[in-house]
C-alpha cells in the first residue's frame, strides 16, 4: 500500500508541476488529467473507492472535457504559445515561489508538530459506500440541496454568459 501511495503521490506532484509550467494549454490539460488519475489512486489507497471513482469520472472526465471544449472554442494556436513564453519570464517565478514555499513550510511544520501522528492502534473499520450515502442524505441533506442550487446557478450563469448578444458586438 505504501508503495502505491508513494508512486501515485510522486506522479501527481510531477504531473501538477508540468501543468503549471507548460506553454501549450493542451499539453497542460493532459498533464492535469494524469494528475487527477494519480490522485484517484491515492484516494483508493486511502480507502475511498467511491471518491476515486468520482475523481476519474467527474474531474478527469467531465470537467476536463469541459476544459477541452473551451480550448477548442477559443482556438488557441502557436501564436498563443509564443505569448505564453513572453508572459512566463523566469523572474516572474521568484516571488510567487518564495511566498508559496513559506506557506508550504508553515503547513508542514504545523502538521508535523501538532496533529496526531499515525493511525491509532484500533483502526476503525473500512468505510462502505453505504456509509457515505447514509451520511450524505442524512445529516448533510441540506448541504446537498444547497449544492444542487449552486450547480443550477452555475448552469444559468454559464448559459447567460455564453449567449450571443447582438448588443455585445457593438461594444
Amino acid at each position: 500500500m505504501m508503495v502505491a501511495f508513494w508512486i501515485a503521490g510522486g506522479v501527481a506532484v510531477a504531473a501538477t508541476g508540468m501543468v503549471i509550467t507548460r506553454k501549450n494549454a493542451m499539453h497542460a490539460l493532459l498533464y492535469l488529467v494524469v494528475s487527477f488519475l494519480a490522485l484517484a489512486v491515492v484516494f483508493y489507497v486511502l480507502g475511498a473507492p467511491l471518491i476515486a471513482a468520482l475523481e476519474v469520472i467527474i474531474y478527469a472526465g467531465a470537467i476536463m472535457v469541459l476544459f477541452l471544449f473551451a480550448l477548442m472554442l477559443l482556438g488557441l494556436s502557436t501564436r498563443h504559445e509564443r505569448q505564453e513564453r513572453a508572459w512566463m519570464r523566469p523572474q516572474g517565478w521568484v516571488l510567487p515561489g518564495l511566498l508559496t514555499a513559506v506557506l508550504l513550510a508553515e503547513l508542514i511544520y504545523v502538521m508535523a508538530s501538532g496533529g496526531p501522528g499515525a493511525a491509532p492502534g484500533a483502526a476503525p473499520g473500512p468505510l462502505e459506500v453505504k456509509d457515505v450515502g447514509m451520511s450524505l442524505f442524512g445529516p448533510y441533506l441540506l448541504g446537498v440541496e444547497l449544492a444542487s442550487i449552486l450547480l443550477l446557478a452555475g448552469l444559468v450563469a454559464a448559459h447567460r454568459l455564453t449567449r450571443e448578444d447582438p448588443e455585445d458586438e457593438l461594444q
Binding site: A12, V13, L104, M111
Partner: peptide
C-alpha cells in the same frame, strides 16, 4: 488504510502549493 495521515496531508499541502 495503512497510510499515515501526515503523509497524505503532506501530499495535499504540496499539491496546494
Amino acid at each position: 488504510s495503512a497510510i499515515p495521515m501526515g503523509y497524505a496531508l503532506g501530499l495535499a499541502a504540496i499539491l496546494f502549493a
